[in-house]
Structures are given as C-alpha cells and as structure tokens.
Design a protein around this nucleic acid. Sequence first.
DNA 1: ATCCGGAAGC
DNA 2: GCTTCCGGAT
Length: 364
Amino acid sequence: MKRLYFRETPPAEYLDPRRASAFRRRLLRWYLDNRRVLPWRDTPTPYRVWISEIMLQQTQVGTVLPYYDRFLQRFPDIPSLARASESDVLQRWAGLGYYGRARRLHQAARILWPARQGKFPEEYEAVLALPGIGPYTAGAICSIAYNQPRPVVDGNIRRVLVRLLRIGGKVREGFFWDQMTALLPPNQASSFNQAMMELGAMVCTPHRPQCGSCPVARVCRALESGNPSRVPVKHPRGSRPVHLLVLLLEKEGRVLLASSGKPGFIPGAWGLPCRVLADAASAESEAARLIREITGRAVSPVPLPPFRHAITHRRITVHPFGSTAEPTTVQGGGYQWVNRKRGKDRVLSSLFRKALEAGAGAGA
DNA sequence: ATCCGGAAGC
DNA sequence: GCTTCCGGAT
C-alpha cells in the first residue's frame, strides 16, 4: 500500500495504544455517569438529532433548549417541516440567529419529502449531500443517531485534542480528524463522540478548565506539563485592522529592499520599505513622506491597488505605492537595490512578495 | 469591547 | 482560503 510511504515513523502526536484505551475507558465511564439530560438524547431519532445538530451549529446548548422543544412541537417530523412555508419555519427560528441554517433545513426537508417519503438517509454520503450539512454535522448524525463509526471534529473537540496531545503550533484541520479516527471505539461512536463534546463543553472549557474533576486528567499532556488553560495559544482575533504602507521603488529594473524598519509582525530579514499607518486615508501623504526620507527627494507616490493580507490573526490592509520618477540615491544604510527575481527569493514574507507581484502587474 | 463557532459561497 | 452569517457569554 502506498500509504506506507506517507510517514516513515509513527507520528509522535498520537497517544500510544495503552494511553488511548485508558482515555476511551475513562471518558466513556465519565460520560455515562455525568451526561446532561437533553431532549435530543432521550430518543435520538435521526430527525431529532438532525434538528439538534443544526441548531447547535455556532450556538450553545442553553440557547438552543427552548427553541428545540418549540420547533419539534410545531414540526415533529420531516413531512410537517417540508409542508410548512419557509416563513413559518423562520418564525420558529426567530432569535436563534444564522437564519441560513433554517432555510437550508427547510430545503433539505423538501428534498426528503415526498421524494424519500420523508425518511432521513442512513448513508453518510447521502446525509452529507443535504443542504446545511457539512462534514461535522454528517458525522454527528451518522454516529449519534445510527452509531456508525464516523469521526467528528467541532470546536470543543479541537480544544480537547489540543490539550490532551499538547499541540503547540498550528496543525492542519485533517490532523484532528485523523486523531478522532484513531481514538474512535468502533462500536461506541455515538457515546464517544458525544462524550468528547460533552467534555469540551463541561470540563475542558476555553477558560478555566476544570482539570480537578477531569476524568482524563491522568492522560492529559497539557496538564502533565504546565498550565492547560494556556493551551491552545490564544490569538487576538477581532483585533483592530492594521493598515500598512509599502513602497515599491524601482531603478533600472531593480527594486529597493529594506533590511530594517519593518513592523514587528512581519517575519524575515529583508522586506520592502514600509510603515504602519494610523488609517487608510493617510496612505498617500505618508507614502510621499517616506519616499522623501529614503531618497531625499520629493517624488510623487503612485498608488497601486490595495490588498488584504492575514497573518497570525491580524487583518492587514496593504497599500502599495510606486513612484513617478526613479530615485537616484538612498539615504542611510539598510537598503539595497536588487533585481526582481532575486528580490523575490530574498524576501521571506509573503506579504511583501504579494506586494512585489502587485507592483509588477501594475507596471510600477 | 472581545471571544466563540459550522457551512456555504466566492 | 477568506467572508459572511448571528446571538450569547464574559
């Protein structure tokens, strides 16, 4: 099998088999003893699980509870949901938010009835194909309602795994799915998946995790070494947008690189001359000022199309500027004229590479 | 005021 | 791969 060549050594991140089975046993024991009583857990029919999972997308259990009961009273099964008008469905959804969920739920019901006599599909691919159902929800329905051995990964589970395995840096999304596949007990997928999510919601919470009462504390790598509430590393998220002025100064087909003066959030030894702006409006005047600082001459900046760039949860709007005339000299050290090809190799930050390309396209 | 989060559409 | 969709918790 070609899969053999995928990894030369077993990846260290996986729990060894003994730890993994201890983890499953303790987690399942805890879940069966401590799980919350929830309406969709009483009689987990596919329809009831489906509605609950759609409502629970981006929404906490406590918020969903009152809506769930009212919704199921009014739409107890797929035919009743399919026969209802969209506005009727939206009325019952009002207040829950993300109204696209309700529309897609309704669309899906209309696909299933009368075509499939209102019977919810059992096959994963068929479930996944329904509107509003992505990989997470399809896995959740198939595992919870049918006990099919399908992994699920949601925000709670990502956090539990990151702490359990003490994942420091970034990992690709597939990593979590691989881990869940490896941990999943084939005959208890329903309980196991719900237990992982329950642990994330009740014990392994984003803030102040209750490690003292965690059933799997003894196998948790984050607890073993340091403070689990520091894992995962928090990144400032909605941090205020940053505007960055970037200069593309050219001379005889070469571009001016700068070795210093970059804002702290841009990696790499070399970049383009740049400056953080207070706001987008000041871009042009700051560009003129910076050109004069570097070249000692008053040369008019030529605005190039701004673009967005995201690094480490910072939203940067880059305002590149060329210039009307080729500068003759540069003042001070830390600058170097480099031809474009070499410049691209030299510049480590993808932000500056993007700016270089933008400049080339615009003929700056 | 900031963090949190699945799916779809681009 | 980035945005948008929303309300609740803190």
